[in-house]
């Protein structure tokens, strides 16, 4: 497919959505339980591009058979998913206030009881196989639906990812699109220091995937790439989105400590102020992290 760029007005609207997603995430992480802020902020533009432009989904018909399907395989970024689902109309924005409170359906990892959530994730390494199933079902049914799967880069250490990578390429699932949130950090430190990750793009190519790399915080670049799959006929597509964990807030960006955060009232106020005054438009911290 030919890549198309969003108009300046559309781009501006998507960036505004991304800012609101970060605000919602900050609000949820200021709740009683806190949340996985860092990995949600690294994934914010990917989620925004997918829900705001790329995917065919309808919040009025969240189970419509012809929809595209999204799996947040890095299920710990649940607060990011809840935020974009609320911004997209799948659940009321006011419900986000219930996150972290007893009785809410908004748990620390997403469950299918939440409208728009296709699969309960949280144990890493499950999403790509599910995506393969969604993609194969669409092909068998003659539907044009695509399956989108967002994985963390640390998640790629799970062997099941590579079972699914082999399977997807073997079956030629060109309607499967995977994104790696390459924020280069996991719970206890840099991914590259914990496990050999590189050459990441070559690994996926060698498994039979079409591979691209992009600035994972440039929503326009993400839309151009994710909106133009398949990039090669007969191959599943993998986008390595170069991101910064915690991006958008200088005192959290690129920090391992941003992985799970319970924001104090003071920090919550600071985060909200920063997000308002300096919205993210590109990968601001890529160089420091690498």
């Amino acid at each position: 497919m030919t890549a198309t760029s969003p108009t300046p007005a559309r781009l501006s609207a998507l960036r505004a959505t991304a800012t609101r997603v970060r605000e919602h995430v900050a609000d949820m992480c200021a709740g009683p339980e806190g949340g996985h802020l860092g990995g949600s902020y690294s994934a914010t533009e990917v989620l925004t591009a997918l829900y705001g432009d790329v995917m065919t989904v309808d919040p009025a018909r969240p189970t419509a058979p012809e929809r595209d399907r999204f799996v947040l395989s890095k299920g710990h970024a649940a607060v990011g998913l809840y935020a974009i689902l609320a911004e997209s109309g799948f659940l009321p924005v006011e419900e986000l206030r219930e996150y972290g409170h007893p009785g809410s359906r908004l748990m620390g990892h997403p469950v299918r009881a939440v409208p728009g959530v296709e699969a309960a994730t949280g144990s890493l390494g499950h999403g790509l196989a599910l995506g393969c199933g969604f993609a194969l079902a669409a092909r068998l049914d003659g539907r044009s639906s695509k399956a989108f799967v967002l994985m963390g880069d640390g998640e790629l250490q799970e062997g099941s990812v590579w079972e699914a990578a082999i399977g997807a390429a073997s079956l030629g699932l060109e309607n499967l699109v995977a994104v790696v949130d390459r924020n280069s950090l996991q719970l206890t430190g840099p991914t590259n220091g914990i496990a050999a990750m590189e050459p990441l793009a070559e690994r996926w190519r060698s498994f039979g995937w079409a591979v691209r790399e992009a600035d994972g915080h440039d929503v326009g670049e993400l839309v151009r790439n994710l909106g133009s799959t398949p990039w090669e006929p007969g191959r599943p597509s993998l986008l390595i989105a170069h991101t910064v964990k915690g991006n958008g807030v200088p005192f959290l960006a690129g920090q391992v400590a941003s992985h799970y955060v319970t924001l104090t009232e003071r920090k919550h106020t600071r985060v909200r102020a920063v997000l308002r005054d300096a919205p993210v438009s590109h990968n601001t911290g890529k160089d420091e992290v690498r």
Partner: peptide, 12 residues
Amino acid sequence: HNLMGMAAGLAA
């Protein structure tokens, strides 16, 4: 693992 995951996706 891929067998079970793909089956789940197809069943869904």
